[in-house]
Computed example of a mutant assay.
Amino acid sequence: MGWKLPTLAAVTVVTFTATAVLFGMAPGASAGCGSGVVDPGAAGGQSVAGYSGEQLENAGIIMNAAAELGLPTTAQTIGVMTAMGESTLRNLDHGDNAINPDGTVADSVGLFQQQERGYGPLADRMDPHKAATAFFTRLMGVDEWETMAPTLAAHAVQINADPNYYTPFYIPATEVVQTLLSTGGAGECAIGGDAVQLAQQLVDAADQGRLIGSTPDHIKEIRWIAQGQTVPDCGVDVRILQVLVLALQIFDQVGVSDINRKCTGQIEGAGTASSHYFNGGGLAVDFYRLNGQGVTGADGNSIRLITALDPVMPAGARVGQVDCRASAGATVSTTNFTQFEDSCNHLHIDVGFTDGQLTTN
């Protein structure tokens, strides 16, 4: 884009509070449950936020480049947003003849309109995957990019004339990313087994330190199920057990603060009307930590979990913290989840208002 360096007063600084968390995915990662790797062609002939065909395929390539570097959904969205602003998600073989600060004409090409100086040969800049990888590599070098407004994070890499230039592209980028994650695989989540088998898997994870509880201890409810014991008012719906197994397929460590409040005698939040309590309880789970990071419902880990679960959840399942995500500018489009407001110190998932079953492989 054209160069016109702004004065400091012209820069609108907005803090993006949704915390992006790295997931430790090795380069060359393949699609797995919640991996963030998508099938670039999965969107088919549909149009998303006005983008279609080649544009959506390029968005998928950008997302995969981020996932292969272990970057979360937040980074994928920033990358797609940037390419929307630079090239409308088209791999352009030309630029806009903008003038660089030193007076030279920019030789920008590709999805990110990268120049030879700084980004190398034309072939690399015209390769969507290499261009995206170069963008994300530079993004990772920006201090605290995770907490910056998305447009400012993009600007820190692109050095656009207007730091706020990318703002209008953030919402459509979010829509494209969420659509590709939900329709493009992002890795299928596979679960099976009855309640006892699922509980045994979870107990194994707890014994390995991968599934952790808080106070009061709700992990004991799972242990009783694994042992084949029926403890009155301490059951856990099999669908919640499935959600926990899926979460452990996505994250190395999962922290749970609430499951069956009737079992522990907790009367809080929605009280006896809570899915944690009514109909015997155990129809909901609250996550308070994912991969060692605190959860707000709007952070990168929460969004990754919501995105991975939504395609397999029954219609009418609920996910909390919609207000937390709205405040953080981290909205998530869901097909099966109904979103509702809840406190921003956990992520609530429940099946208390649906008889539907999870779609499992």
Rank of each mutant, 00 (worst) to 15 (best):
G255Q: 10
Q227T: 05
T230P: 00
R239S: 00
I225K: 00
G255S: 11
L241P: 00
V243P: 02
F251E: 04
V238H: 12
G255L: 11
L244S: 07
V236I: 15
A247N: 10
F251M: 04
V256Q: 07
D233H: 10
D258A: 12
Q227V: 00
L241K: 02
Q229G: 04
D237W: 01
I250P: 03
Q249N: 01
Q229S: 08
Q253F: 12
D258Q: 13
A247D: 09
G228T: 12
R239G: 00
R239E: 07
L241V: 02
G235W: 03
V243S: 09
G255E: 09
A247M: 10
V256M: 08
L248G: 13
G235N: 15
I250R: 05
Q242S: 11
D233T: 06
D237M: 06
V238T: 15
G255V: 09
G228I: 11
Q227N: 14
D233I: 02
C234A: 15
V238Q: 15
V231E: 07
Q227P: 01
V238N: 13
A226C: 07
A247I: 13
D237P: 06
V256Y: 07
A247E: 05
A247C: 12
C234L: 08
L244A: 12
C234T: 06
Q253K: 13
L241C: 11
V254C: 05
L244H: 03
Q253S: 14
S257A: 14
G228F: 06
V245G: 01
V256S: 11
S257K: 05
Q229K: 15
V231G: 05
I250H: 07
D258W: 14
D233G: 04
